[in-house]
């Protein structure tokens, strides 16, 4: 087990302390999801047309279910706060002295956190998916599922690099929470968390696809549902990969600029 292997196991152990918190969060998180599903069901029941915004009832429900699965697998929860606190309180000094790379170390902790969260949430989520099985559509094809899986990994990396970069603002400002919340709000709507992006007017979709937001959630979900076909699958995956590379380089650049400003408060 290499040093980053230890980082992962350390991360797993320290998040296991909060397992009850995780289960509570997973359970409470299901209520708004259930509300959204019932809301869309009510909307569809009141309409003669089975398609609303290009989605049948089953498709729109599946959309939200898969969104929640992808969020559970990839969302950054505590990591950005911890990174910002490490910088503010001068705790990153120890990483500068050791032969360990802070970004890679945090990536290991993030992966560990997702593993524990997934393990804690898997049973409630599976029960929930089972309860919605009438409306749960299978992936469009084996190929789509494969691309979906690859895309989820890229989504996780993109989420992490963006959050890492945002947390590095702590080198310059005292309170990063507001900036993180503003970005999160944009991501919430532009990433397709609130509603499928292809329900928006097409000019707005075109604008959004120039930003990384759709690749932070919407893209894998739309692949799962088979709304991306043929060459566009590979093209989307490539664009997502480019965003991952770009945000990685940005994170590195901001980190090295930040270090130049860093004054190691308290230690």
């Amino acid at each position: 087990m290499g040093k980053y292997g230890y980082a992962i196991s350390l991360g797993i152990q320290s998040t296991l302390v909060y397992r009850v918190n995780f289960v509570v969060r997973a359970l409470f998180g299901l209520v708004p999801l259930l509300a959204l599903i019932l809301l869309w069901r009510a909307i569809h029941e009141g309409q003669a047309n089975p398609d609303i915004g290009g989605y049948s009832q089953s498709e729109v429900i599946t959309y939200y279910l898969i969104v929640n699965v992808v969020v559970a697998l990839t969302a950054v929860t505590e990591d950005d706060w911890q990174i910002a606190a490490d910088i503010r309180d001068g705790r990153i000094s120890q990483f500068l002295l050791k032969p360990i790379d802070y970004l890679r170390y945090r990536l290991c902790l993030f992966a560990a956190g997702r593993i524990v969260y997934t393990a804690a949430a898997v049973i409630p989520t599976a029960v929930f998916l089972w309860s919605q099985r009438e409306n749960l559509v299978a992936p469009a094809s084996g190929l789509h599922f494969g691309v979906f899986a690859a895309s989820v990994v890229l989504t996780g990396l993109l989420q992490f690099f963006v959050s890492f970069t945002m947390a590095l603002l702590a080198f310059w400002v005292l309170e990063v929470a507001t900036f993180i919340f503003i970005l999160f709000a944009f991501e919430y709507v532009a990433g397709g968390h609130l509603f499928p992006l292809d329900m928006l007017p097409s000019w707005l979709q075109a604008v959004l696809h120039l930003t990384p937001f759709p690749y932070m959630l919407y893209f894998p979900v739309s692949v799962y549902l088979g709304r991306v076909q043929g060459a566009l699958l590979w093209q989307g995956l490539l664009v997502q990969g480019c965003w991952v590379a770009a945000t990685y380089l940005l994170a590195r650049a901001v980190w090295s600029r930040g270090l130049r400003r860093y004054s190691a408060v308290g230690g």
């Binding site: 809301l39 009510a42 909307i43 009141g46 309409q47 709507v189 928006l200």
Partner: peptide, 17 residues
């Protein structure tokens, strides 16, 4: 955002319940 969610829904339907 909450209002935009409703705007999107009501761009595709004219009533909820």
């Amino acid at each position: 955002l909450q209002l935009s969610f409703m705007a999107v829904i009501y761009s595709h339907t004219d009533h909820i319940a």
